[in-house]
């Protein structure tokens, strides 16, 4: 699921994705998958510095985007 998360964020970059939309997209890519696994993978990627999250100043939505480290992981480029 981590790869699907990174690929989705990579495809949308530099646009940040709402957590709910990100989950739906990842579910589509992985043909299902649980929310628990999604949250745990997202947290792991965040700890690894591959993705980051920001709260929208107006709506307080959690907006995710890919970081250079995550881009490296997806593209294989340094």
């Amino acid at each position: 699921m981590s790869t699907a998360i990174l690929q989705t964020l990579f495809r949308c970059a530099p646009q940040a994705l709402n957590e709910t939309v990100l989950l739906t997209e990842v579910r589509l890519m992985t043909d299902g998958g649980g929310e628990g696994q999604f949250c745990s993978d997202l947290a792991r990627l965040k700890m690894a510095g591959m993705v980051s999250v920001e709260e929208d100043a107006i709506t307080a939505d959690r907006m995710w985007k890919i970081e250079p480290k995550g881009l490296q992981r997806i593209t294989g480029r340094k």
């Binding site: 949308c12 709402n18 939309v21 739906t24 100043a57 107006i58």
Partner: peptide
Amino acid sequence: ALIRKSLLDQRFNHVMGELSHKEL
């Protein structure tokens, strides 16, 4: 600028969410 960014992010996510939700 802050309101503009928030509105535009919402618009993008709304359309993207709607489409992926329909697929799901």
